[in-house]
């Protein structure tokens, strides 16, 4: 189990592979579910050049750990990974990586789904998008569709 915030570029597939190798659970898991959120170059505005992600460091660490603990209590997870970017990101960069390992697919899929939705609505991160006209704070997350 691991969760952290990164202020530099993250490589989602590498992080997932490393987390899987670190736990020594070969043969125990039958399902791995993952979610990777990446930056688009459009939202309500077009031509977004970059984005800056601010957070509340002490609360973020505590909140991500709490999410992991709750997911482990609700589903029989063998391993779990949550990594979130802060600082300056560009279109195509990964913003968040979540992965869940379990014996069966339903637990892995449901835990991964629950974790990203909880994170999006409660973890203290804020996005500011930059176009040629300047910076604009993103006002709220969409309903996921």
């Amino acid at each position: 189990m691991a969760s952290w915030v990164s202020d530099s570029l993250i490589e989602p597939w590498q992080l997932i592979a490393e987390q899987q190798a670190a736990q020594n659970i070969e043969g125990q898991y039958g399902a791995t579910a993952s979610f990777i959120g990446s930056m688009r170059d459009f939202s309500d505005r077009t031509d977004i050049k970059k984005m800056v992600l601010e957070h509340y460091p002490a609360m973020t660490s505590r909140y991500l750990e709490k999410l992991e603990d709750t997911a482990r209590q609700r589903w029989p997870l063998l391993n779990c990974l949550i990594v979130h970017r802060v600082g300056e990101v560009h279109p195509g960069d990964a913003i968040v990586v979540i992965a869940c390992w379990s014996a069966h697919r339903r637990a892995a899929l449901d835990a991964c789904d629950w974790l990203i939705e909880e994170l999006k609505y409660k973890a203290p991160f804020w996005k500011k998008e930059f176009t040629d006209d300047g910076g604009h704070w993103v006002s709220g997350n969409t309903d996921g569709h």
Binding site: G37, L53, H55, Y56, H84, I95, V96, I116, L119, K120, Y121, K122, A123, P124, F125, W126, K127, W137, V138, S139, G140, N141
Partner: peptide, 8 residues
């Protein structure tokens, strides 16, 4: 104090 969160 902060506005609605927009991470993920």
């Amino acid at each position: 104090f902060f506005p609605p969160v927009t991470g993920g």
